[in-house]
Design a protein around this nucleic acid. Structure first.
Lengths: 221, 221
DNA sequence: TGTTAGTTTTTGAGTAGTCAAATTAGATCC
DNA sequence: GGATCTAATTTGACTACTCAAAAACTAACA
């Protein structure tokens, strides 16, 4: 059975991998995401490679194996179901669910997770709109595009936010930017570095940084 | 902040202490309850003493300090609230709540526990009838006596079972011996080593070993 | 081509916990 | 008072992580 440290590394490698959209995850990135020194990450990655969870390309980076991806999806399932539970049942604010879920996900049994899944009514997404993998390890996410790639004038629906930072989430909530809300994209300028949207119902408008808008995924209906 | 290993030692020392009803907990007992070798327990106890959680009497045993007792009650609160949650909300059988709670209790935050407490409606006891300490650390248990000290013929109400062994609990459940149920004590013999009770409602009778009956706490109304 | 900047790896050391096995201290019993 | 039994302690070693700092590699640019 993997230790919780191993579980954490694998989960991070998975998210960095899909985040980067390119092959391998370099050590610097991994060590920063894990909050450890690069040397520590190298040591750990060698070990992960020994137990076949990743393939390690020295001086380039790591890539999950099928076995590693399996574990990553199991962890993501745990994490997101726990986040949903914390928000829907215990009344956490969506900005604070991440930290507690991060600790709980390594302590729960499969039985716990399956019972929790049933209790919650088999939700498909967590409070941030992240899709929840099934118990068999399949995951399907809606077709979305980053907000900063949409053309102004279009109507968009917020589907997912790729960020766990509480401050950012609180801020987005103030702007009504959370999954399910509809907006009109008013302006999007890489040069000015801003994206402005107007909330469909309330007519309130919000401006966010261009980079951050890339982490807001929307659907164009 | 104490590590989860430290938390576990402190909780075990607390329960052994009240279990034994006498002063100090000897190393053998502690090491067995923790599932480690005696040498390991000695090493750990010295450390616990360094951080003022216990007072260590070499070659005799350990005793919790006020600070240690505080931590023990916090852990007991966590453990028992989680047990209640697993049974009442997620539908665990009472025989299986212990193991999962044991792992979760070290991973939850104070915020989590307080919100869980509210969600459960501030329960006073867990599924085994063990009293749940308040968030301020006070604990009050009902007046009870071990079943094997009652006089035959008397009516008794099961209040609490001092055992976490799943096999034992499943067995007790089959006999209807769980908190809230009423019985007539038919026979109790230290010599024969058995205690026989009759369930008040169903008239079914059950016989358990004299030693085990000492771990069944009842109220004599 | 040679220098430099940035990344990655190696090395040596530390922390928290564990075990096995040798040793020591207490108690008990003739 | 010794012999003996048991519980407790010490010792040395191992695992799983971690860091700091030195060394090595890569890429890129003058």
């Amino acid at each position: 059975m993997p230790t919780s440290t191993v579980e954490q590394y694998i989960k991070i490698i998975y998210t960095q991998q899909e985040h980067l959209e390119k092959g391998v995850v370099p050590m610097k990135r991994l060590s920063e995401a894990m909050g450890v020194t690069p040397g520590t990450a190298t040591t750990m990655v060698k070990h992960l490679s020994d137990v076949q969870l990743v393939t390690y390309h020295p001086r380039q980076g790591v890539l999950l194996t099928a076995k590693g991806e399996d574990l990553a999806l199991r962890m993501l399932r745990r994490h997101r179901l726990i986040e949903a539970f914390l928000e829907q049942v215990l009344g956490y604010d969506w900005s604070e669910v991440h930290a507690d879920a991060e600790r709980l996900e390594h302590a729960v049994s499969d039985k716990f997770i399956d019972k929790l899944d049933r209790y919650l009514g088999y939700p498909e997404v967590d409070p941030h709109g992240d899709p929840i993998p099934s118990s068999s390890g399949s995951i399907e996410s809606a077709v979305t595009v980053p907000l900063n790639t949409c053309t102004p004038g279009r109507r968009v629906r917020i589907v997912r936010l790729l960020d766990d930072d509480p401050d950012f989430l609180v801020c987005m909530k103030d702007y009504m930017i959370f999954p399910g809300e509809d907006f009109i994209l008013q302006e999007s300028s890489a040069v000015a570095g801003t994206v402005t949207v107007e909330h469909l119902r309330t007519r309130g408008s919000a401006t966010v940084g261009y980079g951050l808008a890339g982490r807001i995924l929307v659907a164009e209906p």
